[in-house]
Amino acid sequence: MHTRLCVYEDLTPVQRALLRGIEVQPQQIAFCGDIESALHSLPAHSHAGIKGFVLLSDEQPVAFMLLKRQPLLAHWAEPDSATLHALQVDRRVQGQGLGKVCLHALPPVINRLWPEVRQLMLSVSPSNTHALAFYLSQGWVECGEAYRGERRLAFTLPPVEQALHAV
């Protein structure tokens, strides 16, 4: 299985159609939404403050996530950060480590596209214990409340040179 992370804009029309077929487990929808709501968040024309990222496995979409930075950065995020939203791994391939692949593929991509971003941040519901444990196991650090009881987590990006060597 060959995987690669790409920006939504780089998908072929066939890949975009297949992406709309991503489904998460029913109990995950409350936390990450569904693919239609995530794609609806993307503007019709490219915007410097938001990007959709797609994990392809053998050129087939298997996961999606949104990243936002200034001027669309969440109020609870640090100014030098980008925030991660709506990470969705298709339920048919969950448990194969593809969420980890997404997170490990992000630093070099972020350093290339948004070199001013120094860290990634996200908010997670404390009742979403699976997601909280997952992010913490991947090196994210809890750093207080985001809003309304949501936990704020951060991941410091490696220096640009180090991230580029990881590609």
Rank of each mutant, 00 (worst) to 15 (best):
Q25T: 04
A44M: 04
P159K: 07
A163Q: 09
L56M: 03
Y147R: 10
A154L: 13
R91F: 00
I110V: 15
E78Y: 11
K68T: 15
S37N: 09
A105F: 02
A163W: 02
S123G: 04
A30Y: 08
Q27W: 13
P26G: 08
G49S: 08
F53E: 01
F31V: 07
I110M: 12
F134L: 11
S127Y: 05
V89A: 06
F64H: 12
S41H: 07
Q162M: 12
R92G: 00
Q162A: 15
L11Q: 11
V117S: 09
P158N: 09
A17W: 06
S41C: 12
P71L: 11
Y8M: 06
L113V: 07
V160H: 12
A146F: 03
A74L: 06
T12M: 07
E116R: 12
A131F: 05
L73T: 09
Q27Y: 13
V24M: 03
A63P: 03
Q94W: 01
V124K: 03
L5I: 04
Y8D: 14
V24K: 00
Q138K: 07
L122R: 02
L39R: 02
L157H: 04
A154V: 13
F31K: 02
G97K: 04
V93H: 02
L42A: 07
R151V: 12
F64E: 03
Q138C: 14
L157W: 03
V62M: 06
P43I: 02
A63L: 08
R4Q: 15
D90H: 13
L153G: 02
G95N: 04
L120N: 03
V7Q: 14
P158D: 07
G52R: 04
G49A: 10
A17D: 13
L103D: 00
P79W: 05
Q15T: 07
L113Y: 08
A146W: 03
H40M: 06
V117R: 07
S127M: 05
P115F: 09
Q25A: 15
L5M: 11
L120V: 06
Q25D: 13
V109R: 11
V124Q: 05
S127A: 13
S46K: 12
P159D: 14
I35R: 05
G97F: 01
G33P: 01
G144C: 09
Q15L: 10
G99Q: 01
C143M: 08
E23M: 11
E9W: 02
A82N: 05
A30R: 13
F53G: 01
W114S: 06
H104N: 10
A166R: 14
M1F: 11
H85K: 07
L136M: 01
K68F: 09
F31D: 09
R4F: 01
A86I: 01
Y135C: 09
E116K: 12
F53Q: 03
A17F: 08
E116F: 02
F134Q: 07
E23S: 12
S81P: 06
Q28S: 09
W76Q: 10
V167N: 12
W140P: 01
A82I: 02
H2V: 11
Y8N: 11
Q60S: 09
E150N: 13
F31Y: 15
S137A: 15
L55R: 05
H2N: 14
I110T: 03
R69M: 06
I22N: 09
K68H: 12
A166P: 00
V117P: 05
L157D: 08
E150S: 08
F64C: 04
Q162N: 04
F53V: 10
N111R: 15
